[in-house]
Amino acid sequence: MIITRRQARRPLTSSSSRRPGSLVRTATGVVGLASVAATVWLGLWVTPPSTNLGQLVRLLYIHPPVAWVAYLAFGVTAAASLLYLWRRTRSVVWDRLAAASGEVGVLFCGLTLVSGSIWGKATWGVWWTWDARLTSTALLFVLYLGYLALRRVPSDPGTRAKRSAVAAILAFADVPISYLSVYWWKTLHQTGTVLNPQRQVHVHGLMAWTLLLGFCAFTLVYAWLVAHRYAVEALAERQQGEGLARALAERRAEGRAA
């Protein structure tokens, strides 16, 4: 664990610039990477097998944290979209944040489906089944794929921002449905392990701590990814603006030469 942290720090700190924001970002990335490494180590080697799942319990430390990050990311996207649509808080910051979080969310939602499918094959015996939780999660993935596709359509930035904000908020309606589906209906999928309405966690000792570490680790990785993705969004906007300015200047120069 300590070795991992040391290895990780060297390449990352070398890239950090003088700005304090990027220092925080780098620190988040380093701690996130270290805690993911610790989660994997604890999850694969240290934690004990469980009574009814045996070794297959080990996917517990991956799948719920990844699913949590997907929900969190879509929640951030929806919240940022709301803030953008509200006239008093309208700022390009919220649009960029929604874009960054939405893309990371789609990645984690896809990983939720894949890791869940693998876990399902191992424990339930099937890769996929059409119960309410699985179906609503698959729908969530497609809804936000549509959101990303909408974002990618070239158009006026302000228009695009508003349009995608509305789409993000409409798509978010599926998140509570997906989360609550296992309580509303009888499903094959088990109910929430940690984030259940009863606030009761039936996970023992070290297993519970590893799961908690997993949640923190992937949340940190999420924050780090969104910070980078946000910067990419901002830089790309700047590049577009400067490209336009350069083209204008060239055309003017041509006009003067002629």
Binding site: L139, V142, L143, L145, G146, A149, L150, V153, A167, L170, A171
Partner: peptide, 14 residues
Amino acid sequence: RVRETLLPLLLLPV
């Protein structure tokens, strides 16, 4: 400009 392809992707899941 891409509404023909985008509308089904947005609408059908909803």
